[in-house]
Amino acid sequence: MSPRSYGQYCAVARSLDLIGDRWSLLVVRELLDGPQRYGELLSALAPIATDVLAGRLRYLEEHGVVHRPSRGRPAARVAYELTDRGRDLQDVVDALARWGRPLLTIRHPGDVVRPRWWVRAVRAHLRPDRGGPTLVVRFEAADATSVTLRITADDVQTLTADAPADVVIAGEIESLAASLDPYRVSDLTAGGQVRVEGSASAVRRLSAMWRRD
């Protein structure tokens, strides 16, 4: 039995044997956005130590989650990507994004925020059957972090921060995270914690896109 193993004949335990180590699922989160070089992963996952990242990538590759197409080249020049098995973790990561949203009520000093994590969070909270026309939404945090997203029937794409938006949601970053819960938007707006700008029809379209499960 591997020292990493929980030693239980259970699919959940076996899954955690593989992706339950610290950083492993965050490596998967980053690679769900596409292939990345070692240095890009090291930067995106800071403050991960380089030896820890190398170990996680090696372990995930050995177990068929990560693929490194260009063997024999220096690690810094190799683009890592997920295998089909690794991409199957998309729903797991999205479910964790929804489950963990209530944990974002406090941003601790030193916490890093990256715009593409907003893309993943928004995508995870959208109804898969949303349909309808394209909508451009900008989230503006009080600390000047801003991300503008184009939401289509089957994707979420990042635009330049100053792209014209149909709906703008502004406030402290903790309130922006809370606004992904459609049941809280009215209270957040009434309490002055977020400001929502846009036509009534655009705001209604956005509200109809959010998951309510």
Rank of each mutant, 00 (worst) to 15 (best):
V119P: 01
A121T: 13
A121W: 09
V122M: 11
V122L: 15
R123Y: 15
R123M: 06
R123G: 14
A124Q: 06
P128C: 07
D129I: 01
R130M: 10
G131C: 04
G131N: 09
G132D: 15
G132H: 07
P133T: 00
P133L: 09
L135V: 10
V136L: 15
R138C: 07
R138M: 08
R138G: 03
R138E: 11
F139I: 02
F139N: 03
E140L: 07
E140F: 12
A141G: 12
A142H: 08
A142L: 11
D143Y: 05
D143V: 15
D143G: 03
T145F: 15
S146I: 13
S146C: 13
S146Q: 13
T148Y: 00
I151L: 14
T152I: 11
T152A: 14
A153C: 06
A153F: 04
A153P: 00
A153H: 08
D154W: 12
D154E: 14
D155C: 03
D155S: 10
T158N: 02
T158M: 14
L159K: 05
T160F: 09
A161Y: 00
A163H: 15
A163I: 03
A163N: 11
P164G: 10
A165L: 08
V167F: 07
V167H: 03
V167C: 10
V168K: 08
I169D: 13
I169P: 09
A170H: 04
G171M: 06
E172F: 10
I173M: 15
E174Y: 03
E174H: 12
E174W: 03
E174P: 01
S175E: 04
A177N: 11
A178G: 00
S179Q: 04
L180I: 06
D181A: 13
P182W: 10
R184E: 05
R184V: 00
V185A: 00
S186M: 04
D187Q: 05
L188T: 01
L188G: 04
L188W: 05
T189A: 12
A190M: 02
G191Y: 07
G192S: 05
G192V: 00
Q193D: 03
V194W: 01
V194Q: 02
V196G: 02
E197R: 13
E197W: 13
G198H: 01
S199F: 14
A200M: 12
A202M: 05
A202P: 04
V203D: 07
V203S: 07
R204V: 03
R205T: 11
R205H: 02
L206D: 06
S207M: 07
S207N: 07
S207K: 05
S207R: 14
A208K: 06
